[in-house]
Design a protein around this nucleic acid. Structure first.
Lengths: 356, 356
DNA sequence: CGATTCACCGTAAACGTTTACGACAACATT
DNA sequence: AATGTTGTCGTAAACGTTTACGGTGAATCG
């Protein structure tokens, strides 16, 4: 294929390389490149002449050539994982985060792409391919597990990255996280304030660190309030559509029966509402609900009490955490590494009964 | 940065180039490359020796070098658009489609990435950047508008692409679409069979071609059944959370009041259910509902009658439609261009009242 | 006025691959 | 034995950039 561009000259626009641009201006390639990259040692006049011509001819630097020469691709990957059901932790979630990240990264000339490990391929090998090919300059990992081999792997491979979520596997990388710890704490205190003592915690079956963080927060904050933890109250939910329905089934058979449940999945409440209805029970009356939700929460009747996060800002923060790691490898100055939880907002509803 | 790799040698794994591999085997770079690419003119023995060594040393070809040499990047872009609210037509939708596409493309050594035009940037310029930089070998466009300038643009730029949706702007490119036409047709016939005559059509305010297709199908099929179209029955819904709620408000004030509504947004029914409840009305009783849904539909009580699509298969078909266009540009053989609607499945529920 | 500095620019090497071309040995054909 | 064929491999150019280095002329200095 030598000497043959892949896209045949169609008489219309011809792809312009830096060489054509240089010929057209009758100056050398090097100067053109320097002008475009705004290097100091080039005359202001020629600089503007080059920029003008580039705009006119629609010149845009070829990424492959650039990447090869600079050793950087200017591509950032946002790695998403689908679970066994092909569903993602995130769905609605991720779009906003992505948007927030992109708003920052574009200002630095970086392109953000979403990478979804296919359900037909082992996520590990998928990640390894991306890394080994040096497809991206940096990665953001989501769906972080309690122990996450990907973290040490990326560290070994010396690829800059940040994680959306904490992990026990910690190499000092920057991370952002949603304050699920705080959510559970706040939820428990709210419930207790309204007279609840039998509080269940419903979490999806997974090894996401998120789950562990919430369980730990649950135990800690109950203990702090002098309430003994009933292990039966920590229930696992199915990922399926009617995880909420079966959850209700499980809960109402418990003895004693919990009066409130803290959830973490924004779809789950829909199933819970349905499950309660099927049993002639009323949400917020026979069972109080509080947990993390999304916009969808406002579609439930009675109104769902829930916590929200500003996902766009989260994306912005992730990008800001990622950028320094790309200039300064490895994570040299721990003081400058951003590692923080973004705060929640509580949206009051009618799903918490006052037991007093 | 010449001669300095961007990722410092960390004493651990060193990135292996083809040159190192060749030195290690004591054969030429050319032969190694040919062996790796399984070219005919290389001895079987050396071929396996090279492959073995490559596996051992963890050699993976550098994408930038490859792209520069071959003029192809092996990257396919799936372009997604967010609307003004930052929400996407798709959300849950797109993950499955993506997965289906990827399952096919990986078999051809192609990498699929999702590209989201940032809400802070004009989608047009975003697309132009991608194209001009030759970042991808091909693109898939979604959220197709009735007249979509992106289509003619990509055609002018001679970049292979397919669209997820039809458009009046048609350059002979392959497209896949969901059979929304058929959905409306089937829905109308079902409703009429159950005695409905006053059938509303609720669609989000947008210029997506999807909207026009459904409206046309609505008019055509009502006319075919001898029912006059009441223009008031074609209502626009808000994109916001409670679009369903306000929709109900609008509908029940109509005179005559429709007995059924066909919807297209899978979130909308949640709002409709809520809106009905707020007015003391019962879904499926006081207002019949039928339209396109997702897994979420199964969380509504009473059960929502709706249509589903196999989104994974849709993704597979898109990939299959895209592949030929990449080898054979432009769309030379119209007979071979895949352009089709994927069929729906009807899921029966309790949201359609029998008026007889 | 000669020497030095400075601003600007051209030259060419380098990034990591692929591949056209030619070279060479082994072997088969007359 | 000369010629042709085949299988295998090395050489080097090419892809489109970036950038270190050196060169040129003009301005500045002693």
């Amino acid at each position: 294929m030598l000497g043959m561009t892949n896209y045949p000259d169609n008489g219309g626009h011809t792809l312009t390389g830096i060489r054509d641009l240089a010929r057209h201006l009758d100056i050398s390639i090097g100067t053109v490149s320097r002008a475009l990259n705004n290097k100091p040692d080039v005359n202001q006049d020629t600089k503007s002449k080059v920029l003008k011509a580039a705009a006119e001819l629609g010149y845009v630097p070829n990424q492959a050539g650039r990447a090869l020469s600079k050793g950087r691709t200017n591509v950032i990957g946002f790695v998403l994982q689908t679970d066994s059901e092909g569903m993602m932790q995130g769905d609605l979630f991720f779009i906003r985060v992505f948007d927030g990240m992109q708003s920052v990264l574009t200002q630095h000339g970086l392109n953000l792409v979403a990478l979804l490990s296919p359900s037909t391929v082992d996520p590990e090998t998928y990640l390894k391919q991306i890394v080994a090919r040096r497809f991206t300059d940096a990665l953001v990992l989501s769906s972080i597990h309690r122990n996450d081999a990907r973290i040490s792997y990326l560290s070994d491979q010396n690829l800059p990255f940040a994680t959306l979520g904490r992990s026990l596997t910690d190499v000092g990388q920057p991370w952002l996280d949603l304050d699920f710890d705080g959510v559970v704490e706040d939820a428990i205190h709210r419930l207790i304030a309204k007279g609840h003592r039998k509080i269940a915690l419903a979490l999806p079956r997974s090894d996401l660190n998120l789950r562990h963080i919430m369980v730990e927060s649950y135990r800690r904050n109950l203990a702090r309030s002098g309430i003994e933890v009933n292990e039966d109250f920590i229930v696992e939910t199915d990922a399926g559509d009617n995880g909420g329905v079966t959850l209700v089934h499980d809960l109402i058979e418990l003895n004693p029966r919990p009066t409130a449940v803290i959830y973490s999945d924004h779809i789950l409440p829909f199933g819970i509402y349905r499950g309660l209805a099927e049993n002639g029970l009323t949400p917020g009356q026979d069972l109080s609900l509080i947990g993390v939700g999304t916009r969808l929460a406002s579609l439930l009747t009675p109104n769902l009490s829930h916590y929200r996060f500003n996902l766009f800002d989260l994306g912005v923060r992730i990008a800001e955490a990622l950028l320094p790691t790309m200039q300064d490898r490895p994570f040299s100055d721990p003081a400058k590494i951003i590692r923080e939880s973004v705060p929640y907002t509580f949206i009051d509803g009618d799903s918490i009964r006052d037991m007093a």
